[in-house]
Design a protein around this nucleic acid. Structure first.
Length: 112
DNA sequence: CCGATGACTTGAA
DNA sequence: CTTCAAGCCATCG
């Protein structure tokens, strides 16, 4: 367990791992489910630090509120995130998820 | 304690 | 359409 053992991080990773296959969610949604949607930055940062975690975090299923793959620049290669998402049935055009409203997974409702 | 950073979000220019 | 600004919160040096 890395030193960064805050409830915020733990919940972020927990929710991230609970994202259903073929679904996506937003940083704000996760943050909102945890406590404050303003903590979206922490969620994204948690994804960055996910490398420090021994667990696999499907960060490719986490996008911003517009369904944009804002974090794809942090993935190896350049189309890794898009490939992973499309491999799960998510339609991605450029950096934008087409069927975002269809694959969007709201933890506050489905994980409730 | 302080300042800087960040894969966000919203709203305004 | 693009760009900027402010708000928020945890972590790091």
């Amino acid at each position: 367990m890395p030193k960064t053992g805050t409830d915020f991080f733990e919940r972020v990773y927990q929710v991230a791992e609970l994202i259903p296959h073929g679904r996506v969610t937003s940083y704000g949604a996760i943050a909102n489910y945890i406590g404050s949607y303003r903590g979206a930055r922490m969620v994204g940062w948690a994804m960055n630090k996910c490398s420090s975690w021994n667990k696999y975090i499907p960060a490719h299923r986490v996008v911003n509120s517009k369904g944009l793959l804002t974090g794809k620049h942090h993935f190896p290669g350049g189309e890794t995130m898009k490939e992973l998402l499309e491999n799960e049935g998510v339609i991605v055009e450029g950096n934008q998820i087409m069927n975002f409203s269809e694959v969007f997974w709201n933890p506050s409702e489905e994980l409730l």
